[in-house]
Amino acid sequence: MTVYSKIIGTGSYLPARRVSNDELAAELAAKGIETSDEWISSRSGISARYYAAADQNSSDLAVEAAQRALEAAGKSATDIDMVIVASSTPDFQGSFPSTACIVQRKLGMTNHSAAFDVQAVCSGFVYAVATADAFIKAGMHKTVLVIGSEVFSRILNFEDRTTCVLFGDGAGAVVMSASQEPGILAAKLHADGTHSDILSIPPSPAGSPASGGFLHMDGQAVFKLAVTVLEEVATEVLDAAQMAPSDVDWLIPHQANIRIMKSTAKKLGLPLERMVVTVDEHGNTSAASIPLALDLAVRDGRIKAGDNILMEGVGGGFTWGAVLARM
């Protein structure tokens, strides 16, 4: 009997503090940095983002999203036999234990389930789903909790208006389970380390803390590469599943920039009405962006059982990938 993996529950969490463009512009103005709602929204499509409280780490956001996904799946934490957390902002920057192990502890999981982190920046959730899919299909694990969680506000340089206005914090999660029905239809992952310098946290000066660096991005280079590879990997994953773009009910791209997202939909011939958009309210939440958007669309009734959803991400590394799933 063929074993498939299927998403059986989704969940998400946003911190309490919502920061509008106007509020952020006022805070930056106090530092002598000029920006505005119009400047931010016209370039990115972002109107607001959420920031974690000082005492909230990635694991805290992850646990909130995980609990909601578990409830939606009708599962308890002890039903999970593997935890995968995708994050570029783990609880312990440049150190250990993994955020997945901390999430395991905070969820009260005492069944010794496997737990580890995945680091592929904004492609992290797609990488994690593909990894869970492979473990389930191989018969090694049956029920996997996959989480994307970020506190990007901690690594932003608030004196650089080209990057600090783009990112936010949040977490999204899915429960994946072994199934007799097809769920994950195809997945493709890629990376090109020759572009590692266009989106990164440069090494901290010698003697400074490992977590002391700030995010650096060559926006034009990232944009150019993203629009190319996202179309390519979407086509690749559709070909692998022997499906056409017209078979896709919902496109859920990484929520980085509305112009990149619209370009991808246009190249695939998909109407914008079939693309889930949350970048306007969430900003770029890196590995959390796709599961946040997925959960929103599931809970508001847009995504229904049997729908085909195409999830794709691109991030620092340079990494990219796509997953085609039937809900």
Rank of each mutant, 00 (worst) to 15 (best):
D160C: 00
D22M: 02
R68A: 01
A138W: 00
K31W: 00
L292T: 02
N257L: 06
R43I: 08
A178W: 05
G172C: 12
I252R: 05
R326A: 08
A86C: 12
A65K: 13
R43P: 14
A86E: 09
H216V: 04
S12A: 08
L185P: 15
I303W: 07
A29N: 02
T319Y: 12
A322R: 02
P205C: 11
I303E: 12
A297K: 02
L189E: 11
K137S: 11
T228H: 04
M327Y: 08
A234R: 00
S41P: 00
R326C: 10
E27K: 06
V248D: 01
G148W: 10
S41M: 03
P245N: 08
E273C: 03
V222M: 10
K75M: 15
L230M: 15
I155W: 01
D91L: 04
R154Y: 01
E23G: 13
V63F: 07
S47G: 07
D55K: 03
I155L: 04
A187E: 05
R154D: 04
R259M: 08
G94M: 11
M243P: 14
V121P: 08
T285E: 09
S177D: 11
V19R: 01
A65H: 12
S208Q: 11
G283R: 05
D160Y: 00
G213L: 04
A325P: 06
M261D: 12
S58Q: 11
D60Q: 06
L225E: 14
I258C: 09
F92P: 02
A16V: 00
I201L: 15
K6D: 03
N21G: 06
I198G: 09
A226D: 09
G11M: 06
R302D: 09
Q242R: 08
P245Y: 05
A48P: 13
A186H: 03
T235G: 11
A30S: 08
V233T: 13
T163C: 10
F135G: 01
A173K: 10
E34M: 02
N284M: 14
A241E: 08
M1L: 07
L294Y: 07
Q180R: 10
E150W: 04
A221V: 07
G315C: 12
L145Q: 03
D307N: 14
L215R: 01
R49C: 04
A69G: 15
C101M: 10
D280L: 03
P271A: 10
I252T: 07
V118L: 15
S113A: 15
K106E: 12
G269H: 02
R161Y: 00
P203C: 15
I258Q: 10
A221D: 13
N157I: 00
V146L: 11
Y13R: 00
S20Q: 07
A297L: 10
